[in-house]
Nucleic acid binder design. Structure first.
Lengths: 184, 184
DNA sequence: CTCAAATTAGAGTGTACAATCAAAATTCAA
DNA sequence: TTGAATTTTGATTGTACACTCTAATTTGAG
């Protein structure tokens, strides 16, 4: 943990470099050497501030997920449309994170189970939000089928996100908004 | 390329070992050493039969994709339901392949662009099949909106597949069949 | 049976990687 | 200003990896 100003600035440079690299060259390409070169820091300095390479990747991804979390205050007033738009914002504004998110989730590249758990929680949280919004919109649905519907909507969104991750030209937002028709 | 019986048997053992490992420990865990140990083959023998580690992974995945290709004869008579069931079969009968499929698609770990292209083609082919089946079912839809619908249905299925890859307990088939309701 | 071709073996090469360490340089509170 | 704590440095370690090479062994067609 950095205590002097110099250390704090170095830490920020390392985090920036890691964020950039994850987006540009993926998880595999984000090596310690690459991070240190980009951050203009020597290896020893890196290990003065971080425990491991894994820890810095973990921080970048965790921070990015937290940053795009819709309605952190959880006011419980969002509509389904709001949530879909929040998801679209997540994918289009942070395509990098979305891609890394998928990579980490699938590959299990990080031994740290914490992140896998965090991703799982993040997903469940999203399902719950959609479920609540669906119930507010159509109370007749009932818990069960609202949960079912929420799961399917999210699957569609993540399937489209997956497609967008593979194909840059894919019109994600337009396709994503069509899920609203099925709930109307 | 194996020519003697011994070589043919060895080749098969290597392919089996690779297939098993990809499913058990993922792309990263499937090292040359692991493959050779599992296949009970020395490294030199491996390279007598395969050009590289990449080539054996490529073959396993390609063969698996081909094996689960729905309706290879392309009779053009499948219903949307048939196609959904074929997809469910793909995911539930070959969960390993489905997982590797996602890993390779996302990670770009293999330099060989051929596989990426093959996956892309595989997807487009599926979209086209769904589009045709949707048109047969409801000709009034028209090309445009049938294509749109096909894309969204496939996204939902792949999103659910992704979910199932992360969570073994996820009831994939049940959720997958609900997409049929939206087309009815 | 013969022998050329195929197969097997396994020590060895080179490379990339994350991580360590001790010493020098610097920061900043008192 | 002082000096203990922090930060920086870069040479170094150890490990894991894909892959090569040469020599011994096995195979099977003629």
């Amino acid at each position: 943990m950095a205590r002097y100003q110099a250390g704090i600035r170095t830490e920020a440079r390392i985090l920036d470099a890691t964020r950039q690299l994850l987006g540009e060259v993926g998880l595999d390409g984000t090596t310690l050497k690459a991070i240190c070169e980009r951050a203009e820091v020597r290896v020893g300095s890196f290990y003065n501030l971080f425990d491991s390479k894994e820890s810095v990747v973990l921080r970048v991804v965790s921070e990015a997920i937290a940053a795009v979390d819709p309605d952190p205050a959880h006011l419980g007033t969002e509509s389904v449309e709001d949530l879909v738009e929040a998801y679209i914002a997540f994918i289009t504004k942070e395509p990098t994170v979305a891609k890394i998110y998928v990579q980490i989730a699938v590959s299990g590249a990080l031994t740290n189970g914490e992140l896998h758990h965090r991703i799982q929680r993040h997903h469940e949280q999203r399902v719950a939000r959609f479920q609540e919004a669906l119930l507010r919109q159509s109370p007749v649905l009932g818990q069960q089928s609202a949960a079912e519907k929420a799961e399917v909507i999210l699957a569609t969104l993540s399937g489209l996100a997956f497609r967008a991750a593979l194909d840059d030209g894919f019109a994600f937002a337009e396709h994503a908004r069509t899920v609203l028709n099925t709930t109307a």
